[in-house]
Design a protein around this nucleic acid. Structure first.
Lengths: 158, 158
DNA sequence: GTTTCTCTACTCGGATAATGCATGTCCGAGTTTTTGAGG
DNA sequence: CCTCAAAAACTCGGACATGCATTATCCGAGTAGAGAAAC
């Protein structure tokens, strides 16, 4: 999976803690010492997926497009990694020695593809059940000082 | 995900239908018109994982190391793609502005990593619950002629 | 006819190139703020 | 002091290089089997 997914989710959490104001990509990148231009690329993808809204010019940046309860981890993963399944069936059963005879026997879906899709659906369901707000709650429970720490850092280096 | 996974599972099904005898990689590749040397590489990985046993020399090839009820799709995927998780947490929360203060605050696992791991565990559980024998049964139900067709093709082009 | 030895042909196995995608970087379009002059 | 305009600085946005993993390939080590010769 794309490494940018990790950066994107972390950035979403930070943006949620910072509230309404827009934060530039360079600032978000500096917080984790990440390559700024590349993180910008990922945030652009989140904006295209309507997870963030982007504001140009001075005092611009990115902000959450909707409350964190409405942003699932599935949304973020799809925005960064794309919605294509990890296992892509290329229908090799139709090629070579087995492919000649029954043309309509392949109307039924490939059983291997079905099994893989079933597993991937379970993965997607699990990701769709976890929102950014849920992750925020977990962090606030295990590390209560983090939200204030984030706010203070982004205020001090304004 | 690695495309070789698809080839590997199909080959496992065919080997199961063909019974005990060893089948060369070149023959299995010809059945789907796949690059022979590359499929050989994948089958080697399956052999290293004790899913197949390899036999050298004339009348050699690959055969299933154990009955198909004992081979899960998870085994095959791990053998080809490796057992590393799709989402790899690089602990960026410890870098940059947030990393300075509490060294032991990071004893607790990263919440994002936990959420991703939970989804991936569901995926793995689903794959581990499906065996090669299950997929065979599905195919025999939707396409009853396939097993005989496979056996005939591999016998004719001996 | 049986046994044994040699030779051949076939298969896996790992080492070796080529390609595609993820990673990383850069500069231009657009917009807001600022700032300065003029009224 | 207020208004207005122009310029400047800052931000996103997409186009442009680079590195590495997947894809693909090849040749050598080893082995089973066929075949011929000797008994």
């Amino acid at each position: 999976m794309n490494e940018g997914v990790e950066w994107a989710v972390h950035s979403c959490l930070n943006l949620a803690w910072l509230g309404e104001r827009a934060v530039p990509a360079a600032r978000l990148a500096a917080f984790y010492e990440l390559p700024a231009a590349y993180l910008n690329k990922q945030l652009q993808a989140l904006a295209r997926a309507d997870i963030l809204t982007s504001v140009s010019g001075p005092r611009g940046g990115f902000r959450l497009a909707r409350p964190p309860e409405k942003v699932t981890l599935m949304d973020v993963v799809v925005a960064i990694d794309g919605d294509e399944p990890a296992f892509r069936c290329t229908e090799i059963r139709q090629r070579g020695g087995s492919g000649g005879g029954d043309a309509d026997a392949y109307r039924k879906p490939c059983a291997i593809d079905a099994a893989m899709r079933k597993a991937e659906l379970a993965w997607r369901r699990e990701l769709a059940g976890q929102t950014v707000a849920d992750v925020m709650t977990t962090v606030e429970h295990t590390n209560p000082g983090v939200p204030d720490k984030v706010r203070r850092w982004f205020d001090d280096t304004r």
